[in-house]
Simulated assay, not measured.
Amino acid sequence: MVKAMPYQSHGLLLDMDGVIYRGNQLIPGADEFVAELISKQIPFLFLTNNSQRTQRDVATKVRRMGIPVEDHHVYTCAMATASFLADRKPHGTAYVIGEGGLHNALHDVGYSIVESHPDYVVVGEGRTFTMEMLERACNLVIGGAKLIATNMDPNCPTQFGLRPGCGAIVAMIESATGIKAFSVGKPSPIMMRAARKELHLTADETTIIGDTMETDILGGVQLGYHTVLVLSGGTQKSDLKQFAFQPDLIVDSIAEIDLEMLLNEPKALATVYA
């Protein structure tokens, strides 16, 4: 007989794009799923590798889609990066390639953003970076600044197709300098573990739901979380044969997840959804 897991002893980490919405369109059933989490007081966090938006901006976007979340339900790779740097060097300095979400996260932990002699060169997503910024970043890294990436995603999906992501921008600096960046965002255990700790859960009490094998599922597997892959984003079921690791559950979308069963015994559902 399977012992039921009390809700308060289990929580969820939810990827956003491809799980909750696609671009600016809510995925059907996502609002009802999150509403159930809120009504049953199940702890959860939205995790995003997008460093452009602030925590509040992301929460506002979700609220405008009809999901009544609070700012504290959002954890971004910019926040994880800022926290990591503040732990290593309190009140440090950074030269930043990125946008408002990254700038604000660094300011919130007491960092100063500078143009010369920084402790770190921090790279996030951005639509406004220039070759002059890349040139400065390269010279600062060669001069001794440590190279940090908010994430290594090679591209970002947009309504028009793909835009080069943080990983693509960082790759130019790495290639030019011969120095590899340290990445903090998913699937890094730094962000994944920090998010779990925000919910005050153990690894076995945590389930991550995502649409990408290389980030959400890989990170969850590495840390011993329960993992659910949704096929509503960037992964097709036929893609799974490429990977040596597998998710515990596979569903077409978040709307198909039986929340009560998932929280009680997630690994037991693999044969139901696979």
Score class of each variant (00 low, 15 high):
A4Q: 12
Y7G: 00
H10V: 15
G18T: 05
V19K: 09
I20K: 12
Y21A: 07
G23E: 12
G29L: 11
G29P: 06
F33S: 02
V34P: 04
I38V: 03
K40A: 09
Q41F: 02
F46K: 10
L47G: 10
V58Y: 06
V62Q: 01
H73F: 14
F84T: 03
H91D: 14
G92Y: 04
T93L: 03
Y95C: 04
A105W: 11
V109P: 12
V114Y: 00
P118F: 00
Y120F: 11
Y120V: 06
E125P: 01
F129Y: 13
M133V: 07
A137V: 06
C156I: 15
P157R: 03
Q159I: 15
G161V: 10
P164A: 07
G165V: 02
C166Y: 00
V170K: 05
E174T: 01
I179D: 04
A181S: 01
G185Y: 03
S188E: 02
K197C: 06
L201D: 04
A203E: 14
E205D: 11
I208K: 07
D211P: 04
E214W: 06
G220L: 04
L223F: 09
H226F: 09
G234Q: 15
D239N: 14
L249K: 11
S253K: 11
I257V: 15
E265H: 14
L269W: 05
T271Q: 14
V272M: 09
Y273A: 03
